[in-house]
């Protein structure tokens, strides 16, 4: 089957397609997250070999939000780049819709990380390389959102914020390498490394399912937002005035 992808670059077609798939993403998000949390809370050991007690279960909301916060940043830059290269209106709208969900998940990651840090390390916050770079990620998200809303002309604000997003992309590898650098003596930190070795299979399953759930959540929320943005930006077109929602 051959699908004409460019058909969905038109806001009109994308609007209706997104409307159809959003419910499925919500169902998937709720089911996966619920299963992941259930597994994480009831099928995993109560205490870990490294001395952590029940509170390590914060990992099931922490890790998913951390990964999604970083992944959504990459997706945001991807859409911004598509917009810069092909000058398609829709990709800028996608970038703009992604930024807010990304910023929100960054806040979730920082907040849950703070609570976990308080229980295990003994502090809410520390100027550790990993924590600091993640805080900067939040600032860049906020900078992008502020820049987007600062310029009234959407064509200009789209371009300007796309450039900012691109510059900020330099940070994502820094966050990763802040702990996992080749020479461990050069990047000692408080935060543990992000190694996926040696994780008990049930804990791993909980992590995978909640992360997938958060991913589906991101799809649903971003598509909902992009539909709002499409309506706002295209409100003077005939196709919007013919929609059954406004008749």
């Amino acid at each position: 089957m051959k699908i004409n992808w460019f058909k969905y670059a038109a806001p009109l077609n994308f609007y209706s397609l997104a409307g159809k798939v959003i419910p499925f993403f919500w169902v998937a998000a709720i089911a996966l997250t619920a299963f992941g949390l259930y597994w994480g809370f009831f099928k995993t050991p109560d205490s870990l070999e490294n001395g952590m007690k029940e509170y390590y279960r914060i990992i099931f909301v922490h890790l998913g939000s951390v990964w999604m916060a970083m992944w959504l940043y990459i997706m945001m830059v991807f859409w911004a780049l598509v917009g810069l290269v092909f000058n398609t209106k829709l990709s800028y709208m996608m970038a703009s819709a992604t930024s807010i969900t990304g910023a929100l998940l960054t806040v979730v990651a920082l907040a849950t990380g703070a609570i976990w840090g308080k229980t295990s390390w003994g502090t809410w916050w520390d100027w550790d390389p990993k924590l600091t770079t993640f805080l900067i990620l939040l600032f860049i998200y906020i900078g992008y959102i502020a820049l987007q809303s600062a310029i009234d002309d959407t064509r200009r604000s789209d371009k300007a914020s796309a450039v900012l997003a691109l510059v900020g992309l330099a940070l994502v590898p820094v966050i990763y390498s802040a702990v996992n650098c080749p020479d461990p003596t050069q990047c000692s930190s408080l935060h543990q490394e992000s190694s996926m070795k040696n994780i008990e299979p049930n804990i791993m399953r909980g992590i995978i399912f909640t992360t997938l759930g958060f991913w589906m959540y991101s799809f649903a929320a971003i598509l909902m937002r992009v539909r709002n943005i499409i309506l706002q930006r295209e409100r003077n077109t005939t196709w919007v005035s013919k929609l059954k929602e406004v008749n």
């Binding site: 100027w127 770079t133 600032f139 860049i140 600062a150 900020g168 820094v174 000692s188 930190s189």
Partner: peptide, 27 residues
């Protein structure tokens, strides 16, 4: 709004350098 955006980016870059410092002698 533009100033806010600039401020945020400024804070971001300042914190990057701070973090890089910490990277070398965090402990």
């Amino acid at each position: 709004f533009v100033l806010l955006a600039l401020l945020t980016v400024g804070a971001a870059s300042a914190l990057i350098s701070k973090a890089m410092d910490g990277n070398l002698n965090y402990l």
